[in-house]
Amino acid sequence: MFEMLYGPFAEFDFMQRALVGVIAIALGGGPVGVFLMLRRMSLTGDAMAHAILPGAAIGYLLAGLSLPAMTIGGLFAGVIVAVAAGLVSRLTSLKEDASLAAFYLLSLALGVTIVSLRGSNVDLLHVLFGTVLALDDSTLLLLAGISSATVLTLAVLYRPLVLECVDPTFLRSVSRAGTPTHLIFLGLVVLNLVGGFHALGTLLAVGMMMLPAAASRFWSSDITMMMILSVVIGMVSGFAGLLLSFHVELPAGPSVILAAGIIYAGSLIFGREGGLLWLAWPGRHLEA
């Protein structure tokens, strides 16, 4: 029985690598997801994941399935869309969601057009859904580097980031840190999406950010605790998802996201902070 839990990882090198990869992704993605959620930017993450696709596709067209080319392409596309949308929303009266939608639609259309120049290819599946079971050394190093950089940057930016979420007017009145903080944070989102994209593809990468974060909200109303929980939930999802895919022979990437989705659904029902069961049977009201 226990054999089933660790056997695949002890026996197969590719399973070990996949586990290391998803753990790294969970470490960076969880906290970023928590902030995305608290700033009501969950869909922003989704939109940016789409914005990365064309950049990665251009990299792929120029250099084939090359890690640096696709990473750099994805980063470029993501950062351009994030920064442009951020600046437009800050300098004009257009809100962030609208400006982001405009930019990511533009880049998505551009990307699809570019991809179609070369016609269909099996490798395109790699771009769309990732290859969590085929992570090589350099990709693992990239993922580890991204999650380390993310955790460090969040530690440094924590104070202005929280202030920017709670009371942006106040932050503007005491400091000029607001806009740079916002842009650096968007940069982190892109970085983590590009990392996640190598393992899970452009479409599912955002799942390792938002599902653990959303699940953690049902267990705690303390930001630090939420970030820790989101990391743990992400790692458990990765572990469970990989096992599921191994034993039942499901595609690995979607299994990981499905596992995270199951934890989310469980939290939604049983969570102590506004979970459905607690809402339905809150117990007798208190004296005061």
């Binding site: 104070r159 979420c165 709670v166 009371d167 942006p168 005491v174 400091s175």
Partner: peptide, 29 residues
């Protein structure tokens, strides 16, 4: 400001909200 744009749903304690006033001495770090 009038009707401060504070996100009241943000998980933050009263103490932390008030302590933001220390920004000018504590700064970012």
């Amino acid at each position: 400001p009038q009707a401060a744009e504070i996100d009241r749903t943000f998980p933050l304690s009263v103490y932390d909200l008030v302590a933001m006033g220390l920004w000018s001495r504590s700064g970012l770090f």
